[in-house]
Amino acid sequence: MSAIEKRLADLGVSLPNPAKPAANYVPAVQTGNLLFISGQLPMGANGLEHTGQLGAGTEIEAGQAAARLCAINILAQVRAHTGDLDRIVRCVKLTGFVSSAPGFGDQPKVVNGASDFIVEVLGDKGRHSRSAVGVSALPFGAAVEVEAIFEIA
């Protein structure tokens, strides 16, 4: 078991089988030592787990849980592409998209759900640059979508 897989197990997290693309794209592209992971939705064992707009009935805590689940799905995609999470040198960047009602401005608090999880799992190599963007809608009514860039050994 890789060190990162052990850390996930210690946290009680089991990575799912990665989601298949919903359109004409691939879930991961590697160029050189950079691995780009396509946007991941908060998909769980029973499908899409978090829907709605932040600031219009969906609370920040639910958005954070959605972002965390997106980060879990990101790591599942990394594992599927690399075969070994210990090949991660560092998380370079996360971009979080938050379905936001007009006037909602706490996107950074929501995307912290993904950022905090990545740092919790990867430690210092999980510290990353980031964008947190409010959008009017996301695919399938998802509350949050997160994409990532990793440096891979």
Rank of each mutant, 00 (worst) to 15 (best):
L54N: 11
Y25A: 00
E147D: 15
A71I: 07
Q53I: 14
V146E: 00
A56P: 01
A114G: 04
P108M: 06
I149T: 15
I74E: 03
A56Y: 13
A67M: 12
I37M: 02
I149S: 10
E59V: 11
G105L: 00
N33S: 14
P21G: 03
S131F: 02
Q77C: 08
L138S: 02
K20V: 08
A148H: 02
G105A: 04
G113M: 04
T58G: 00
A56L: 00
G123Q: 02
A148S: 15
D124N: 14
L138C: 07
P18R: 10
L75R: 05
P42M: 01
H81F: 11
E5L: 12
F150V: 03
P18N: 09
I37E: 07
P18K: 11
S99T: 06
A80Y: 06
P21H: 08
A3F: 06
A76L: 11
V111R: 12
L122K: 05
N73I: 03
T95I: 12
F36T: 12
F140E: 13
G39P: 09
S136Q: 14
E151W: 14
L54Q: 05
D124L: 10
S115I: 07
A132R: 11
V119G: 01
T58I: 09
T31H: 03
S136T: 15
E120R: 09
V92L: 08
V13N: 02
A23Q: 04
G113V: 02
R87M: 01
G134L: 10
K125A: 00
L54V: 03
A62K: 09
R90W: 14
N112T: 12
L94E: 01
